[in-house]
Design a protein around this nucleic acid. Sequence first.
DNA 1: CCCCAACCTG
DNA 2: CAGGTTGGGG
Length: 597
Amino acid sequence: MDPNSGLLAHPSQACSHRAEPCMEDGGSPAPGEQGRHSPFPWTQAPSSSLADPDWFWDEHVQAKRARVETIVRGMCLSPNPLVPGSAPARDSPCCPEKAQERKRKQSLPAQQGPLRPGPAGDRGSRKGSPRVREQLHLLKQQLRHLQEHLLQAAEPRRAQEGPGGCDTGTGPLRVKQMNGYGSQPWAMDSDHLQGSSGALSRVEKQTVSEVTYQSEEARFLPSGARALLVILKKELTGAISQAVDSVLQKLLLDPPGPLTQLSRRFQGLVPDEPSSPEAGAWKDQLSPAALPRRAQPQVGGPLGNLPLAKALDSPRFPVSPRMLPKPYPGPPANCPLTVPAHVQEDQTVSQLLGQGPGGHWSSSLPQDSSPQSHPSSEAALRPWGAATLRPLALSRQQCPWPFMASCLERLPIIPSVKMEQGGPQAAMDALPFSSAHEGLNPGHLKKAKLMFFFTRYPSSNLLKAYFPDVQFNRCITSQMIKWFSNFREFYYIQMEKFARQAISEGVTNPKMLVVLRDSELFRALNMHYNKGNDFEVPDCFLEIASLTLQEFFRAVSAGKDSDPSWKKPIYKIISKLDSDIPEIFKSSSYAQELFRN
DNA sequence: CCCCAACCTG
DNA sequence: CAGGTTGGGG
């Protein structure tokens, strides 16, 4: 399946761009909004729930309610894309669909078309009689969805198709729910929720689950119970509202249209979630507005570059720190697109988002072709169940996807490389090879390695563009291509190695595998490509690495490795994730500088 | 045929 | 990391 779909924040985008592998030529990937045509299917839903102004009419309350509803609604619409065949996979992982026997096809591994998503179903069914009752019912439903989503967040399900992802929700979702939870879904929920670091506060969580639970029972109770329900409902709403409010507060700080910003933000936060319902909804909803913005070179500053990175820490990871579950909360505050400069302290936002309603915002990753682990079991197994909530958003800068891509260029990166003050000349003199030389020198090799952080599959044109001081000829080009080939080799070997290791250690949820800066895998990679540590490894690389690791994990878990060309699909995925390379690399003296150090 | 990528070796 | 081989693709 199209692996990308999972990564793409925008299903629709995914689709539209699916044909165009992101440009690998370092050129500017015009982040166009060519593909967004989202008809806002969800529009409908909102209206139904918010339709009655008189109902909750208190500007404040209403606002809150609206926000909550929006969020919840999004969840309801959840497109839970599901891999058709994946469900079974879990039970019988051993029999992968080897059917598609593709020979060493190096190019496109049979790529299935995107799933045809159905129109987003809308559950908005409201008559108009006893409003209260209706409301309650609705709330309960929403609650349930919320919980389900939270649980699902932990599930390694793969968001299957991008565009479709959004709407397909209903069918698959149901199935999933059935499978995942027993009659007493909530029992576990509670645990699960508590486990999630970024989620609602304990109390809130508790409240949520309790409320839900009770409402179920209360169904049969008379008026008295109803009152209780109302109260509980209120509490719940309050809790959610609080979370939402907090997020909003942060967001409101943003100058222009808070709402828009919010939306954008969400969009950015859920980059990889084609599967997550709300994600889809939000995206569809706002992307149009967001895009334009992104197109703008608001490159001013280092946007949300890695604000969250540090948040991670505390790997409460029993095993080795090799792969850490993402303990943290939230989705990366990434997408520059959305993120204003103050993002850094936006951790809160992301945290909040990561939690509450947003908890699931994180989950889906690329193809979860193998929903092998049930959320519940997963949670039970590992204390870090919550970790799964961490969204692996390929955010920032270099996303292969147009709209996410923008920030490139303004990568703060490279700050670490110390440039010689002497100027190019000075550097040259000191160097054994001057740029005049057509050959490749160690500096070039070093530079190429660093470039690997951004591009795994550079085209010869890209190389030419980034090595202006090299006189390319067939030989040189081949040589450089060869370098990258070697880099890749090492990279993939590491990934496979660690993926297998994770499996042997009992990890069942691929989303648990995240490459952090303090992980062993990272060290290995850094050592290989950035030995001198004179370069700050871009976050985007970590994202890609995590993804790669997860892909390997999934493939091996599913027994795909028995197929001689089982890696091909992974290569294909990764090959589409090249990012733009910072301009600095175009400097003809850069290599020398590197070499110097 | 040539180019390229993965693989395998050293 | 370079060489050489294999295999797919245009």
